[in-house]
């Protein structure tokens, strides 16, 4: 897949600390790309380097395979973490102003804005002043003006902060729809559930380093750690004894209907097929599933260094 952005060995130091230390990130075109990491890890700095707000001390940014230039910035839609709107301006006027700055004609901007305002059910905000809006309301406006000119690359810094679950869902749907229409979306977040739902790729940044990069499904699979659950009818103790050489029994419980559920950690050198065969011989096996760790688990383990 073609890369739209590639950051190569980017390092940025501020007085007192290093925000990014030799970070390399490759963002494929058409992906929803999550930048994860604890607070202060360097996510926002990386975004600002991509946006050319911050100049890196070393390293370079490639845009569509060539060194990025100032003009390329104007092909990005960017929603910063700290939302910014003119507080004294009316919502509609402000949206029109920002839309026209992005190269839309007045007429085109009006048509598109109306569509978005209807979609979000906020038509009656048009003449409100921004300072009278709640944080969540202002977020919606900010989102609209970010995507209005349909840029090829969208960057959202913590897009879900300040949204209630309903609006967060609305936002997720819109982000996925933008991707389906051909845009590449980069966003930074702490919200792991949203990462599993909408990200194709992630990069995990911790303490200024890129510690984990790749496709979400591959990462989860590769960090599966050979953990399975088996559900069966039969003698759980006998089974445990039989599996003891190749498995560690993590949990085992019997329910009232006579079924048992067992959580197993299969040793690295053991064969999963023979484990299944053993269970099948010993009991009446109903289901056998691999447990894929959640991004939340991977995040915590990666940050704690126990991955």
């Amino acid at each position: 897949m073609a890369e739209i952005i590639r950051a190569e060995h980017v390092t940025k130091r501020f007085t007192g600390h290093t925000a990014l230390d030799d970070v390399t990130v490759s963002i494929p075109e058409g992906a929803v790309y999550g930048l994860l990491g604890p607070n202060g890890a360097g996510k926002t700095t990386l975004i600002r380097v991509i946006n050319r707000i911050t100049v890196p001390d070393s390293g370079k940014i490639l845009f569509n395979g060539r060194p990025m230039e100032q003009q390329d910035v104007y092909r990005i839609g960017y929603m910063p973490e700290e939302r910014g709107l003119y507080r004294k301006m009316k919502v509609g006027e402000q949206a029109l102003f920002l839309a026209r700055l992005k190269g839309l004609s007045r007429h085109e901007a009006l048509t598109r804005l109306k569509k978005w305002f209807v979609k979000f059910g906020i038509e009656d905000w048009w003449n409100k002043k921004v300072e009278d809006l709640s944080k969540g309301m202002a977020q919606k406006i900010q989102f609209i003006v970010t995507v209005l000119h349909e840029p090829k690359l969208l960057i959202f810094d913590e897009p879900f902060s300040g949204f209630d679950p309903i609006n967060a869902n609305l936002l997720k749907e819109e982000i996925l729809r933008l991707r389906d229409n051909g845009a590449t979306v980069i966003f930074s977040t702490h919200n792991m559930a949203s990462v599993e739902e909408i990200c194709d790729h992630i990069t995990l940044i911790n303490k200024s380093h890129n510690i984990l990069s790749g496709r979400v499904d591959e990462i989860r699979r590769s960090h599966g750690g050979n953990i399975f659950t088996a559900r069966f009818r039969g003698d759980a103790d006998a089974l445990a004894q039989r599996l003891a050489p190749s498995c560690e029994i993590m949990e085992s419980e019997n329910d009232l209907t006579g079924f048992s559920t067992m959580k197993l950690h299969v040793a690295d050198n053991a064969d999963v097929r023979s484990v299944i065969a053993a269970i099948n011989e010993e009991t009446e096996l109903r289901s056998f599933n691999e447990i894929i760790p959640s991004m939340n688990d991977i995040f915590i383990r990666a940050v704690n260094g126990t991955l």
Binding site: N51, I53, Y78, P80, E82, R83, G84, Y86, L101
Partner: peptide, 14 residues
């Protein structure tokens, strides 16, 4: 403008 952070929004445009 600096304090309202509008500038960071505008930077990708202007």
């Amino acid at each position: 403008e600096k304090n309202s952070r509008i500038l960071e929004v505008m930077v990708s445009t202007v």
